[in-house]
Design a protein around this nucleic acid. Structure first.
Lengths: 240, 240
DNA sequence: CGCTCGTTTGAGCACCTTCAAAGCTGGTGG
DNA sequence: CCACCAGCTTTGAAGGTGCTCAAACGAGCG
């Protein structure tokens, strides 16, 4: 996300082809040989796993600018699927050229790397929420995180964002039942912390919601990130 | 972990200095500026977070061969601490030389990269367990995972491994209370799936435990990994 | 030998689940 | 343009998994 404009354009040149997926369709199926690397250019997707008993766990969300890690080079098959929550557009990346060109674009390499570290931090925060927060704080926390992540890519309009997620999916992301996810959302609504209608979320008072979630921005590592990317690189350019 | 012997030796040459930590001590404190990269050479450590209300969440475990990701280069401060569960020895890595030498050792770069991908996969599996498995399967699942990870580094002796973890810590890792963690362990014990005494765990019938946990090895990506590392690299050598 | 830390067990309770059914809403076809 | 339909949301009621509080037991250590 925190890529300077010039590198973004350069990245466009790497695109193999664009693809679109309708709402509620699989982009990558669990267990299949990983097709390649892609970037979400618009829409909302998520990674998920299906358990033997049919249960589903949503692992994390992917918004515009998010990319798959470079699994395909090293791992033979995926351990999870990727699912388009709403209509979603992606750009498949030419792996060989990506690899080859990264040498000349240290910033991009650093950005990719930084991105992978941030994703891991998000996973750790999710674990923390699922293990040690109750359903109320957990839902509030996730809504805060999505807010901040969408804000970074300019998808927050007047404290509103689209969240094309059913309440069952929200539950699957947080380890809650559909019914309980609904009750928590209703409670947040009656308390005035959110206004959730037709898959659109409005957060009138972000600070209040963050308070309820005990949300802290540190795990997103927003501070130093873009500087690092911008200020040349901490490693010799030719390295990457 | 799946590093060929020659690269291991080479890695030894990169060590800045060795350090030892007693049981139940902090190796890295949460929020501090990240000191650097290190490898656990012996012992058992874990990453953790402390919540505002005092609750603790253990994020994952680090055994011999596990290393910190290269956070220190890109992120200004840690979002989590690292804690020595038992007496633990680590090797601090000389970052600059690591960076510089990686160029000439593509295998090592790939191994590091693969390692980061595997760690993320482990985090995703943990999320799945916490969200969609009950306490019984969750405990069994973690014990299976630790078994397999320790087996890779040769720390399983006759179906036994040391697990220098209190039951409270086990609970903190899985989102359970100390009391409930205890009850589940006792249940696994009476069912003959484990023998757990003085922080030593014996698994008489691994398949039975895996069955109880609905454990599948895919997320560890053990299959292709070492081959990839061994078979030169999928990318031009000079790249990494 | 006493002390501290960890384990074990009991009892009561709460959060969250499951099951069931009714109310909505947006999309589709007649 | 209306009616139907499918999927999503909402609400109620009952039950269970796992928590909290509390206390006893054990074991290693100074």
């Amino acid at each position: 996300m925190p890529l300077p404009e010039q590198d973004k354009e350069w990245l466009n040149g790497l695109t193999l082809r664009f693809d679109e997926f309708p709402a509620a369709s699989d982009i990558v199926r669990e267990g299949e040989v990983f097709a390649g690397v892609f970037v979400v250019t618009a829409g909302h997707a998520c990674r998920y796993k299906i358990l033997p008993d049919g249960g589903r766990q949503i692992l994390d969300f992917m918004f515009a600018g998010d990319k798959t890690e470079l699994h395909s080079l090293l791992l033979t098959s995926t351990d999870h699927g990727i699912f388009a929550l709403g209509p979603t557009a992606i750009a498949w990346i030419n792996r060989d050229r990506l690899m080859a060109e990264i040498i000349d674009h240290p910033r991009v390499a650093v950005a990719l790397w930084w991105n992978a570290l941030q994703r891991a931090a998000i996973l750790r925060e999710r674990i923390t929420a699922m293990g040690r927060r109750d359903a109320y704080a957990r839902v509030a926390h996730l809504l805060c995180e999505i807010y901040e992540r969408l804000r970074m890519v300019g998808e927050i309009v007047d404290h509103n964002y689209r969240l094309p997620v059913t309440q069952a999916e929200l539950g699957d992301a947080l380890g809650l039942s559909e019914v309980h996810a609904n009750r928590i959302l209703r409670r947040l609504q009656t308390e005035g912390l959110i206004v959730y209608q037709v898959r659109n979320l409005r957060i009138p008072n972000l600070d209040a919601l963050k308070e309820a979630a005990a949300w802290s921005p540190t795990y997103l590592h927003l501070d130093g990130s873009s500087q690092v990317v911008r200020n040349a690189t901490p490693v010799p350019p030719r390295l990457w």
